[in-house]
Design a protein around this nucleic acid. Structure first.
Length: 431
RNA sequence: UCCUCGGUAGCUCAACUGGCAGAGCAGCCGGCUGUUAACCGGCGGGUUGUAGGUUCGAGUCCUGCCCGAGGAGCCA
């Protein structure tokens, strides 16, 4: 057998005979001339089989091979403008590894219910393959940027003790006879690990048992949560815009082919460079009112509001200084104006909504203690968290970036269910 | 949890005011040496989500339930 190569490297082998191991993506049967589209996980290449040039058994195999059969092909690499991708393989050998019968997903239209039921096969399709490749690039860019900017990866637990009085949005599990819950955020633990490492991040799955039925929600999703000691709200925003810009520009540079498969308008992504616009919650409220929304100060933004604000700018926009009352108990108050807090959300451009939530955390023991009381949280569960304000408390900030929402935005797709291989949604846990 | 829409062949859909269950694609057979979701000819393919009800007659109308989609709410 000749040299086994991957399709993504095919240009380097022009004129040579190579072997490709993969699956039949699609075919065109022209009688004595067969076009086989073969994919190997790295790309798709057209193989041409001509009856007059081939031994009868090889040509018969080319004629009989079915969609998604696994196969090993050998042939000479040739540049040809008529071939998708610019290169094709002049077939000389074809071994069918397994002949597939009745592959359910045809190259025609399908409904979302059918496709989700066949998710384990759907991920082979070009669009889904491109999205998941981009996701992998996003994940790599996240780790590369943080690792090269002084952040230490310290992962936080997935199984957590009961810490809130309201457990309706938590998935409960049995922990040796005691209830335990799947994590909703690693942030509180991150606030502990910055005391040891200065700058940290955790990166893993997060679980929400909310009965959300929207294009922006999954019950299991991935979140990266950086946390930084001695960084204030302004410093947090500077880190966020550098971080997000790096992710977007890395995908543009390394996954251009996949973005093209998705027909993404990349000119919009090219604009995603620092600085991002910054507006206060007050200004956002005014903007919404000017746009005709019936919105009053103190309300939280719903999906249409986030979309409207995001569409107003040509790059992601920071909204900061939200009302203290609508944010989490650990947000630092603005010392000059306690009714607002030092929180910041990043809303993606093109109306994709919130991709980051974060801000400066409460550093003061007294304030945190008061907040725990105001929110009716069980004090003893938070003793360790209060300890962080007893022993060397510092101003600190952090944020959480949702991987699926970020991938959906970069890919320009409308529903985040396609940005993870096996989405977990309300009423959907198969396959 | 609420609102709206939907469930008919393997898939995507059609079926008028209640009157014979239909097409394209996929599959199978045949044809075609440059196809790009190829094309041309032929063949097979149905418990109309489910349980009741109204009616001479229900895919179609009514009620319950199941499932899905879109949106809202929820969303340390």
């Amino acid at each position: 057998m000749s040299n086994w190569v991957y399709i993504e490297n095919i240009a380097a082998f022009e004129g040579q005979e190579v072997t490709i191991k993969g699956w039949l993506y699609n075919r065109t049967d022209k009688g004595k001339l067969q076009f086989l589209l073969v994919r190997d996980g790295t790309g798709i290449i057209q193989c041409v089989a001509s009856q007059k040039d081939l031994p009868p058994d090889v040509f018969a195999a080319a004629q009989s091979v079915t969609q998604e059969s696994s196969l090993i092909v050998t042939g000479q690499v040739r540049a040809d403008k008529r071939a998708p991708g610019g290169y094709e393989l002049l077939l000389t050998g074809l071994q069918i590894v397994q002949l597939t019968q009745d592959y359910p997903i045809t190259p025609k239209e399908h409904g979302i219910e059918f496709l989700m039921k066949h998710r384990h096969l759907w991920i082979r399709s070009a669009r889904q393959h491109a999205i998941l490749r981009i996701r992998a690039e996003v994940v790599k860019a996240i780790r590369d940027w943080l690792n090269s900017h002084g952040f230490v990866n310290v992962d936080t637990p997935i199984l957590t003790p009961s810490s809130c009085e309201d457990t309706t949005t938590l998935f409960e599990t049995d922990y040796f006879g005691e209830p335990a819950y799947l994590t909703q955020s690693g942030q509180l633990y991150n606030e502990a690990t910055i005391g040891a490492f200065g700058r940290v991040y955790c990166f893993g799955p997060t679980f929400r048992a909310e009965k959300s039925k929207t294009r922006r929600h999954l019950t299991e999703f991935w979140m990266v949560e950086p946390e930084m000691a001695y960084v204030d709200l302004e410093g947090c925003m500077e880190i966020e815009e550098q971080f997000v810009s790096y992710i977007v520009q890395t995908v543009l540079a390394n996954r251009a082919k996949e973005l093209q498969t998705l027909e993404r308008d990349t000119s919009k992504l090219e604009k995603v460079v620092p600085p991002f616009p910054r507006i206060t919650y007050d200004e956002a409220v005014k903007l919404l009112q000017e746009k005709g929304f019936d919105f009053k100060w103190g309300d939280d933004f719903g999906a249409p509001h986030e979309t409207a604000i995001g569409e107003h700018f040509d790059r992601p926009v920071f909204v900061h200084h939200y009302p203290t009352a609508i944010k989490a108990f650990y947000m630092e108050e603005d010392p000059t104006r306690p009714e607002v807090c030092l929180s910041v959300d990043l809303l993606a451009s093109e109306g994709y909504g919130e991709i980051i939530g974060g801000g400066q955390r409460t550093a003061s023991y007294e304030l945190l203690e008061r907040r725990i009381k105001e929110h009716n949280l069980p004090r003893q569960a938070y003793e360790w968290y209060l300890d962080l304000r007893r022993y060397g408390s510092v101003p600190h900030s952090g944020f959480g970036l949702g991987v699926e929402r970020t991938v959906a935005w970069i890919c320009g797709i409308s529903h985040i269910r396609e940005t993870i291989a096996f989405p977990r949604m309300l009423e959907r846990i198969y396959p």
